[in-house]
Simulated assay, not measured.
Amino acid sequence: MKYFKMNLKLFITLIVLVLSVNVFAQNKGKALLDEVSKKVKSYDNISIDFKYTLENLSENIKQETRGDVIMQGEKYKLNILGVTRLFNGSKLYTISPEDEEVTISSEGENEEDAITPSKMLSFYEDGYTYQLDIQQNIKGRKIQYVKLTPIDSNSELESILLGIDAQTKHIYNLIQIGKNGAKTTLTVNSFKTNQPISNSLFTFDANKYQDYYINNLD
């Protein structure tokens, strides 16, 4: 659990990458990534169930968890590690039942730790070189990988492999390799689009958390 908590922000980065691959459509993989980007942008909302795995053989670590996320534009509701992160377009609510605490923060562009799709896009836009990699047949599905390599030689990352289903043009998985030998894998188990969702899905209801400590960082 310690390692998962340390990698929560990393996981959100991966989720945003999964939903925003148009950032990387600039070279030989451009045609494929453009197709994925066009398809993603055509959806009103996207619901993903996923498996998140962390492996580090040198430290004899292998841990995994499951979660889900619903995104509509910049709004999202993410459930992972027993924590819910709810972003309504301007405020981020991090709800922790274990700690009985709700942390509220603004997601302005000038905030260093703000985790928004738009900021993640700009953060990664110039940070990688990328190229088509191998194609694999996984359970009858042809998965085409695009390899991303950090430009910064001081980066803690060795590379990222983004796997795309060649038929559906949906993301199958994302594999991140660290220079410390750690491998983080996000595998999409279910990818649904344009689902009926409540108008209040991204609205924080304070009445449900009257006994929680409210930590307002604004």
Rank of each mutant, 00 (worst) to 15 (best):
F4C: 07
N7M: 10
L10D: 06
F11R: 02
T13K: 10
I15V: 12
L17V: 12
L19D: 00
A25R: 02
Q26F: 11
Q26Y: 11
N27T: 15
G29H: 02
A31C: 13
L33F: 08
E35K: 07
V36T: 01
K41H: 04
K41D: 06
Y43Q: 00
D44F: 00
N45G: 04
S47R: 02
S47Q: 07
D49N: 15
D49G: 09
K51N: 07
N56Y: 13
L57P: 15
I61C: 11
Q63P: 15
Q63F: 15
R66Q: 15
D68T: 15
V69G: 03
V69W: 05
G73L: 13
K75F: 10
Y76D: 03
L81R: 14
R85F: 04
L86M: 05
F87M: 07
G89E: 00
K91W: 08
Y93V: 00
S96M: 10
S96R: 01
P97M: 09
E98F: 15
E100Y: 10
S106Q: 04
G108K: 11
E111G: 07
E112W: 05
E112L: 06
A114V: 00
P117L: 14
K119R: 03
L121M: 14
F123Q: 12
F123N: 07
Y124W: 11
D126Q: 06
G127Y: 00
Y130W: 12
Y130S: 09
Q131G: 05
Q131R: 15
L132K: 11
L132S: 04
Q135N: 09
I138R: 11
G140F: 12
R141H: 13
R141D: 10
R141P: 09
K142G: 11
K142N: 13
I143P: 02
I143R: 14
K147L: 06
L148I: 01
L148Q: 00
L148M: 03
T149R: 00
L162D: 05
I164F: 10
D165S: 05
A166R: 05
Q167C: 14
I171C: 03
N173S: 01
G178T: 04
G181L: 11
T184A: 07
L186K: 02
L186M: 09
T187I: 12
T187L: 05
V188M: 08
K192G: 08
T193E: 04
N194R: 05
N194F: 00
P196R: 06
S198F: 10
N199I: 11
F202M: 10
T203F: 13
K208E: 12
Y212K: 04
Y212P: 00
Y213Q: 13
I214Q: 14
D218S: 14
D218A: 07
